[in-house]
Amino acid sequence: MDFRQLEYFLAIVDHGGFNRAAAALYVSQPSLSQAIRGLERDLGSSLFHRIGRKAVLTEAGAALVPPARAALHGLELARASVGAVRELRAGRLEIAAMASPTVEPLSTMVRRFTDRHPAVSLVLRLALTRADVIEMVRTGGCELGLLATSSPLPGGLNVVPHHVGDSRLVLVTPMDGPFPAGQPVRREQLEGHRLIVGQRGTGIRSYVDDLRAQGIDVRIAVETEHRMAFLPLVLGGVGLAVVTDAWADLSERAGALVLDLEPPALQHNVLVSRTMEPTPAARAFLAVATRTIGT
């Protein structure tokens, strides 16, 4: 077994098949298949079920994923600790992020990080819920993850949380909507209104679920995973939307009305990292993120 075989194995897992993995790795498909057959011989087990063009993990294959990611991370850490990468003159950092904090504070963090370390390549991956972010970091798919949550993270998640500021929730309505400009909207005033909401597992959806738990009869007009759909749906008169204030400027420039909520509601932005030693790029990004809070 060698690191090249593990890299090929994880590429097949991440890309869902041999052909796509070979294209991503810039190797021929026969060379990739030969390397995996060698790995399977070494381990004495099949790692994939070949179903058409797809590759589905066997039970043995699924068991190999976490240690394979850990082994490659260890190799990356060793390489990153010496030479050019140690000085951040090269490297790559993958970050998983939920939609709302991708607007802010992530965009500011990325801008400041790339200003300081332009040679480091960043890869931003979308995660729909905070559980998805944690899983992508915990299993090694990404080294860092940014999530928004209305409640503290439970223990035992095998990630390290870093609080990187808070975001307010605001209400977005059409300009001729039911509430006057410049006045906060109390929770009970949302009674009977139709709302556009995200999927369960997001902080914005938790706010709406809490309203209903308090006996405030809000109606869910649309549930969507696509944050960019919120604003067109609001402007189209489908319903109102509760979003983070990161969306306020874009919403106002598009012609929507943005109103404060009363009492104020906050979402906590949390960067999570692995429990193992971070690579220099991840360590530098965490330092930038921490400084961003203060400014």
Rank of each mutant, 00 (worst) to 15 (best):
L171F: 01
D176A: 14
G145N: 09
P101N: 06
A131I: 07
E94G: 14
L88R: 00
R112Y: 10
G155P: 05
V110N: 08
E87P: 08
P161G: 04
P178D: 09
V103W: 00
D115L: 15
R138M: 01
R111Y: 12
S151V: 13
T139N: 05
G165C: 09
T108Q: 14
A127G: 10
S81V: 03
L124H: 02
S121R: 15
P161F: 06
I134R: 02
L106D: 05
T114H: 15
H163E: 07
H163V: 10
P154N: 06
P152N: 00
A84L: 06
V170E: 03
N158A: 10
A127M: 02
R86V: 09
L153H: 03
L124Y: 08
A127K: 06
T129K: 02
A99D: 01
A80K: 02
L122C: 11
M109W: 13
V172C: 10
G156L: 03
G155M: 15
R125C: 06
R125N: 04
L153C: 05
P174C: 08
V172I: 10
F113Q: 05
E104S: 15
L147K: 04
R125I: 09
E143N: 06
R130T: 13
D176Q: 15
M98W: 02
M136R: 11
M136C: 01
T114G: 14
M109I: 15
T114Q: 15
E94L: 14
P161N: 05
L93D: 07
P101M: 01
D166M: 06
G145I: 00
R125P: 01
G141A: 12
A90Y: 07
L144S: 03
L144G: 08
R112F: 11
V123Y: 03
S81I: 06
C142M: 00
G83A: 01
L153F: 11
L88P: 00
T114S: 15
V120K: 08
L93I: 11
V159T: 07
V164L: 13
P118T: 08
M175G: 02
V160C: 12
R168F: 07
A181Y: 05
E87L: 12
P178A: 11
P180C: 13
P154W: 13
M175A: 09
D115F: 13
D132N: 11
V159H: 00
H163M: 10
H162G: 07
T139F: 09
L169S: 11
R89T: 06
L122P: 08
R89V: 08
L124Q: 10
V110R: 12
S107W: 03
T139K: 04
R111E: 10
R79V: 12
R86N: 12
G182R: 12
E135Y: 03
T108F: 11
H117Y: 15
A131C: 08
G177E: 03
C142R: 07
I95C: 03
I95V: 15
D176N: 13
D132W: 07
T139L: 08
V172Q: 01
E143M: 05
S100L: 11
F113N: 06
A127F: 00
P152W: 03
V172D: 04
R89H: 07
R130D: 10
A90V: 07
G165V: 12
